[in-house]
């Protein structure tokens, strides 16, 4: 008999990370999938950047930001997928009820998905950054300390979105799985990954600025094109992320309670 159970346990988080690590280790398609899309994206945008760099004027300047944009976008997109995949794996394997009746607390469950998101990202995106350096001479690491700020802000957003997706799947079942794959593409035009915010219609620009990644992509362009690190943009993004994470955590807990009321935890995976 287990006499007590602490209200927070790193051992339980570690157990969940091990669960996903065992899975990754046993499945080469899963490992390949982690690196496949970032690699394809990098190659395509790398060639485009090389081509456009030979042009003149503003187009050539804009092209200089493409590879940085695509690699940062992949941090955002892959961060969210990495988080959501860990959750979906439990649904696919019909293991969620086992976890929900175990002493694993929701916050530990979420922290384990965050840890897996970082691990998946390291496996998937980091090697691609070195390939971009080798094939296209683009050194993402050359962004220096700013890269840390970009990386942290994008990851925070990706976890907030991943948390909302997990809650929706928990509440609505696998019918909501498609959202996990597609929701981030809503952010692609609105966060101005490849063009400045000023490109958007005036009425849409305030909406764009409410999305934390927008400031990151603006900050990246400022750094690459003007060699200026915009700390104000990073602070704005971080502030928004704090709000987004809090709202996403609240939404996840509400959706979990709602799924308990609806009895949907008994039929997960179906």
């Amino acid at each position: 008999m287990i006499a007590t159970s602490p209200s927070f346990s790193f051992a339980r988080i570690f157990a969940m990370v091990m669960r996903h690590w065992y899975l990754l280790r046993s499945s080469w398609p899963r490992l390949l999938e982690l690196i496949y899309w970032p690699l394809v994206q990098m190659v395509m945008w790398g060639f485009l950047q090389s081509f456009m760099a030979k042009q003149t004027g503003a187009l050539a300047m804009a092209a200089g930001t493409f590879l940085a944009a695509v690699l940062l976008w992949d941090i955002l997109f892959r961060g969210q997928l990495g988080f959501s995949f860990s959750f979906l794996e439990e649904m696919w394997s019909r293991n969620l009820a086992n976890l929900m009746i175990s002493p694993l607390r929701p916050v530990e469950f979420v922290l384990s998905m965050i840890a897996m998101s970082v691990i998946r990202l390291i496996i998937g995106v980091v090697p691609v950054t070195f390939l971009a350096m080798y094939f296209f001479g683009f050194n993402l690491w050359g962004l220096g300390i700013a890269l840390g700020a970009f990386f942290a802000n994008l990851l925070l957003t990706s976890w907030a979105i991943g948390l909302i997706c997990a809650g929706l799947v928990l509440r609505n079942g696998m019918g909501a799985e498609g959202l996990t794959w597609s929701i981030m593409f809503l952010f692609l035009p609105l966060t101005c990954v490849y063009y400045p915010v000023a490109t958007l219609p005036v009425w849409l620009q305030p909406v764009s600025w409410m999305l934390p990644p927008t400031a990151v992509f603006e900050g990246m362009r400022s750094l690459v094109l003007e060699n200026t690190f915009r700390a104000d943009l990073m602070l704005w993004s971080f502030g928004l992320n704090v709000i987004w994470i809090a709202l996403a955590g609240w939404a996840f807990m509400r959706l979990m309670q709602s799924s308990k009321r609806a009895g949907s935890l008994l039929s997960v995976g179906e």
Partner: peptide, 22 residues
């Protein structure tokens, strides 16, 4: 009607749940 993760070995699954239960 509830499964354990299919790709994990029996030992890995029991190890994960052992740690979850302390």
């Amino acid at each position: 009607y509830v499964d354990l993760p299919h790709r994990l070995t029996v030992r890995q699954n029991l190890s994960v749940f052992g740690r979850l239960y302390g």
